[in-house]
Amino acid sequence: MDRTAGAAKAIFITGGGSGIGRAVARKFAAEGWFVGLGDISEEGMGGTRALLPEGRCFTVRFDVRDRGQWDEALAAFAAEAGGIDVLFNNAGIPIGGALADLAPEEIERVLDINLKGVIFGAQAAYPWLKARAPGSCLLNTASAAGIYGVPGGAVYSATKFGVRSITESLDGEWAADGIAVRDLMPGFIETPLLDIAPNRKSNELIRDRVGTAGLEITPVDVVAEAAWDAVHGERLHTLVGKTARSAQFASRFLPGMLRRRNRTAGRPLG
């Protein structure tokens, strides 16, 4: 990446207060990068900061749903870091359950954070990434749920199919600017998000449903390594974990079987 000699590369991470964001922050900081954390949780960002080398972290509390806050957050980070080499569009929340059971406000919140937040992030980051090109990168967190929809995942899958589409669209749109666009497509990852209910009507944790379904839970450090490889590699979509790889294989080579399995799966995951 084009940087002043001796200057550290800089990555800004949304959802940096926990889970995947925290693991990626630790990985990039360990590699000598200056890390920016954006989150709505001051406590979460403080916890991440405590795990990073002294003087290698900047935090800003903001809401990814607010376009103006995006501009303020990135400008503040760029002033501290000297620029932005990578934006990791990672903030997201889960939702699951039968579509008919979901409240409109639940649906709107997931759409706003998981999809609108990613679009606003890409738009706000563009001038900063262009200034660092060639070699800068927009990295988005998509999901195995963006490979093939499953019962109980209509809204969440819609957001992650959308993130996948944004990645593919901007890969073409920003190629002439020298900005790489990539995404991660993880399955179920060992993060605190597994220990919440998938919707307000459910009292069963996501972790319990995943276990009942016999699905793999991937260690979060595996995602951090995948993020590093994605930023430095050429692959557009990076699959993370057995669940994601199985979904990709089935959707490509066994779509009929996958559809039949969905239609006879019983109660939705979530």
Results as ranks from 00 to 15, higher is better:
L254P: 02
L74E: 02
F161A: 02
V163Q: 01
G82S: 03
G241T: 09
M185I: 14
V223P: 01
W70G: 05
D39L: 05
T59Q: 13
E80C: 04
V223R: 02
G32K: 06
A98H: 15
A103E: 14
I107F: 13
E216M: 13
I217Q: 02
L254H: 05
R252Q: 10
I179H: 06
F58S: 04
G15K: 10
G135Y: 15
F58G: 00
A25N: 07
E42H: 09
K242C: 00
L236Q: 03
P53Y: 13
A247N: 06
R65S: 11
I166C: 09
A5T: 15
D221P: 08
T159P: 00
G55E: 04
R263N: 14
R207E: 07
E105R: 10
D66S: 12
T218N: 04
E173F: 11
R260I: 13
V150K: 13
H232A: 08
E190Y: 07
V155Y: 03
A180L: 11
A98C: 12
R56T: 04
P192I: 11
I107C: 01
A125F: 14
T238D: 03
F77G: 03
K27D: 10
L205M: 15
D71P: 00
F188R: 02
R209E: 12
L111P: 07
F120H: 10
D229E: 15
D39Q: 05
I166Y: 14
E31I: 00
K130Q: 05
I206L: 14
G135P: 07
D2W: 09
G214M: 14
R109H: 06
W228C: 08
N199Q: 02
I95A: 03
P127Q: 06
A50T: 03
G47R: 04
T264D: 08
N90R: 08
R65E: 09
V163R: 05
G6Q: 07
R164S: 13
E168W: 14
G55V: 00
F120C: 04
G117W: 15
H232K: 03
G16H: 13
G162P: 01
P268E: 14
G92N: 06
D66C: 11
V60S: 04
Q69M: 09
N90D: 05
I93M: 11
K9Y: 12
K242Q: 11
